[in-house]
């Protein structure tokens, strides 16, 4: 199988290049993209990429696979490459490349930090723990599962155009995760920080985020909930 990999070392290369490597893939098995990448690395040990858990939990190996963002470790090659075609691997779009498939995630984390992704509760802490009813806990389903792989945010044109101002789908999913938490008491402060023209309202609802999320989450719906809460509070 022919694998085309984005190669770029900003310290030595003038510009990025796509480099093709022929990899021997067993015919009787459907490998994951990460397995193919590992085989390619056996042939060229200088290829740089992040990976860790190899089961879609750590979120390290988010990359652009044949034009679509996804986690290399849980994306079967049969789902992205037609028989006889090339596997094309590029870094996540919209973030600076550190080397090859490794991107600088600073801007992504900065936007994540902005939403204060932790419980804020002004009331005195109880002796053991803050309790939550099963119904309230259920409201966090579809929100807490995010692994911050950045596949959604880096597939969003609004983030490409304004990475310093638009929080992006991953950050906004987490913003709603804490807005929706019955144990959090800072909803109005959180909302006040989101009502400007960029943080939330750059979302045009094109739903690239929903299409690529490897965990099947729906940031667009969360953003809709945030908008509704902003309207409830201010209108």
């Amino acid at each position: 199988m022919l694998v085309s990999i984005y190669r770029y070392n900003p310290e030595t290369d003038l510009k990025p290049a796509m480099v093709d490597i022929e990899v021997d893939v067993p015919a009787d098995r459907d490998l994951m993209v990460l397995d193919v990448l590992n085989l390619a690395k056996e042939k060229d040990t200088t290829i740089a990429y992040r990976r860790s858990c190899r089961e879609g939990v750590c979120g390290s190996d988010g990359m652009n696979i044949n034009g679509v963002n996804g986690l290399a470790c849980i994306t079967p090659i049969s789902s992205v490459v037609k028989p006889g075609k090339k596997l094309v691997l590029r870094p996540l779009p919209g973030l600076p490349v550190v080397r090859d498939l490794v991107v600088d995630m600073s801007m992504f984390y900065k936007q994540f930090e902005k939403v204060k992704p932790y419980l804020i509760n002004a009331t005195p802490a109880p002796a053991i723990e803050r309790l939550q009813s099963p119904e309230d806990r259920e409201k966090l389903d579809g929100l807490y599962e995010c692994i911050l792989c950045a596949c959604c945010t880096t597939s969003c044109p609004s983030f490409w155009w304004n990475p310093d101002k638009f929080i992006g789908p991953a950050g906004l999913l987490q913003a709603y995760r804490f807005l929706a938490d019955s144990r959090d008491t800072a909803a109005s402060e959180r909302l006040a920080g989101l009502e400007d023209p960029f943080s939330v309202f750059r979302c045009r609802g094109i739903m690239n985020c929903v299409a690529v999320c490897p965990k099947g989450l729906n940031p667009t719906r969360a953003i809709g909930h945030i908008r509704s809460m902003l309207i409830e509070q201010s209108v």
Partner: peptide, 14 residues
């Protein structure tokens, strides 16, 4: 909170 002097109204929400 991102500030802007040129958008139409007070906030992104409006």
């Amino acid at each position: 909170m991102v500030t802007s002097a040129t958008n139409f109204s007070r906030t992104g929400l409006s």
